[in-house]
Design a binder for these strands. Structure first.
Lengths: 228, 228
DNA sequence: ATGCTATGACTGACCAGTCAGTCACCAAGA
DNA sequence: TCTTGGTGACTGACTGGTCAGTCATAGCAT
């Protein structure tokens, strides 16, 4: 959404008004030589912390700057505005796992192994990392950022579904699965992972959730009465 | 500090008869005589719209006031501040379903019927209503509102778990369920509902989800290979 | 010098919450 | 029945403060 663009318009005339400006003292040495890419990464990393802790609207770019060890203006040398920073953050966190997805494409392993691998990978690579918070951010802020929602559907959710469905269909045909329910709704496989992500942020302190154990229970249910 | 107010009063929850707020009110006549309870309800209803559309931080009380057909100051006659308004909104939406929960307590129906009833009730009373958006709000804003998260755990999640676990344990002992997986993690029953709620806000326009069908598929899986 | 990057004070906009004033309503007196 | 004065629910301009985004200036590198 972004609060309009605003503050457009040339306010050039201002400069004269500040004739008696305070003596600007630009002290301290600058760690200038830091590679541009590292600076970018530092800003993204700081943004991750702030957006996760406060949400999109609540996060302050001044805090991001301080955490990254740069001045506020520096952020604007690397990102067009707050929304662009947010979108790039999501992209930068999601992209690394996209590669892993396509690896699944051509394999043809037993359904149970496929699903166990998928869920354990999620627990290890998402639930056990900062990506868990990114998922929460996408879920929380997505409705107000159609661009993020679309990106995430196109690049992640849609791909996962497209890869899983034929695999599950074949597995069902082979009798490895109770029926075609999973092939029609692969979301049912991942649903408990969503619960885990949300539970962690909301209720873990009242009632901790053993995610590994839940995954095992879930797989047990999915394959109840079938051969492992 | 806020002028008295404190927004006491029962959580009657009102039926929000005037659901969608009056778009404009004649500037001349003052609807003074409108009952206080109706005015309160109008503000809550408007707050629902605004908080759902923009999130807690993004929602503007001026917009809530306009939508409710009152002046901004009037909100503060009924609610202490923005946070109190948000909390009362959540409470007012959640409370009505608390009664339905305790009805489950003493019944001892077959597990499949129990779970089907639970899920269909959720689809009808939550997914099919504005409460769906409240769930999304709780999930989105909960991490930053410990009071909301705790309230929701204590009043809803914890109760549901406490009610379901013994019922599921007995059903498992009776052989109606594949094992004790569901009794240990009743979250697995509700997980697809969470997916449905989040999907609706994010991806429905790219890829609509047939929730009723998904529920059926889910129940099929839970009871695969068992007698209905 | 020249062309970068970086800085942080500054600006305009915006918003939660306040409060002095308004006026619809009622009741008591004529 | 017709003033008239009191009451407080309601109003919205205003305040104090916040924050995204800008830009004149300063430093580093070559």
């Amino acid at each position: 959404m972004a609060r309009a663009v605003s503050s457009r318009g040339g306010e050039r005339s201002r400069s004269a008004a500040r004739a008696n400006a305070p003596p600007v003292d630009p002290p301290a040495a600058k760690p200038r030589s830091l590679p541009a890419e590292a600076r970018r990464a530092a800003i993204l990393s700081a943004a991750l912390e702030e957006f996760c802790a406060r949400g999109y609207e609540g996060a302050r770019l001044a805090d991001v700057a301080k955490r990254a060890g740069v001045a506020k203006g520096t952020i604007y040398l690397y990102f067009a505005d707050k929304e662009a920073l947010f979108q790039e953050l999501v992209r930068s966190m999601v992209s690394p796992v996209l590669g892993a997805l396509t690896q699944l494409r051509e394999v043809d392993i037993p359904a149970r192994l496929l699903i166990e691998t998928l869920l354990n990978t999620f627990v290890r690579e998402v639930y056990g990392t900062r990506r868990r918070d990114i998922i929460r951010l996408i879920l929380s802020e997505g409705p107000r950022f159609p661009a993020i929602a679309e990106f995430y559907y196109r690049e992640v959710v849609g791909r996962v579904l497209a890869i899983l469905r034929p695999l599950l269909q074949r597995a069902a045909a082979r009798g490895e699965l109770p029926g075609d329910a999973l092939a029609r709704f692969p979301q049912l496989i991942v649903a408990p992972m969503l619960v885990a992500v949300m539970w962690h942020g909301l209720f873990d302190k009242f009632d901790p959730l053993d995610v590994d154990e839940m995954v095992r229970a879930h797989v047990d249910i999915l394959f109840a009465g079938r051969t492992g």
